[in-house]
Amino acid sequence: MTSSATISVARNAFREAIRDRVLFSLVFFAVLMVGAAVLFSQMSFGISAQSLVNFSLAAITALGVILAVFLGNQLVAKEIERRTLYTLLAHPVRRGQFLLGKFAGLAATVAVNCGLMGVTLLLALAYVLPGHWAAGEAAVIAALYLILLALAVLIAIALLFSCFASPVMAALFSLAVFIIGNFDQNLRRLGSTAHSWLGGHAAILVADVLPNFGGFNVAAAAAHFQPIAWRLLGWDTLYAIVYAGVALVLATAVFAGRDLK
């Protein structure tokens, strides 16, 4: 399996996102940030920074989730619907390479998006806390990195669903997984305290199978400029690689045997 086909597909997926003006969301975000920075700068010193970081990381996550889910679940469906996949797969491109390329292309798009939003956030922090913002820089960057990892996992899951479900269903499934995955700890607590044996085990099973998106959320710590442990970053990186990898392998297995009618 050559990687050149994967890179070509990834580059084209990225080009599609750029030319379809996906990054216009950045303009929206920038306007939001300028407004928030002006608003929060009216508050007291500590609260303004906390509020700005919390608000911005939530906005970055929300925009990233929208991109990951709504572009991710169309990656395969749109190619089949428009039959562009036929000519693509008639060339020496394996279905796994196609999926991996699409994943990489969208992940790159989301990364650029998040990166630029992150820069905007750091500039806004510099405005709100002139001369003091550097203290929280590392924490904010770490939080952005973890958001990116979570979005990569979400893209892989959206891609998996898009291999067998309609775009609407795939979007709903992906969103459901993201929401439930953010309540991983609650599910585990529910599992250990549930009165019903079946209910308790079901909650634990769901928490085990679905990705723990809550584990990627360090917004509260970042807002207080608390350092994010390297160990947590390393562990979450490994977790994201394994989880996204398994989702992509499953997607390839599902897609490899699918008839393209």
């Binding site: 084209n12 080009r15 599609e16 030319r19 428009r82 562009t84 000519t87 060339h91 020496p92």
Partner: peptide, 22 residues
């Protein structure tokens, strides 16, 4: 009745497929 990536120019599209065909 083919449909191709309409965000590409004709040359870019053929180049893309040439790339895929090694």
């Amino acid at each position: 009745n083919p449909y191709f990536y309409d965000y590409l120019r004709c040359r870019e599209l053929v180049e893309y497929y040439a790339e895929l065909a090694n």
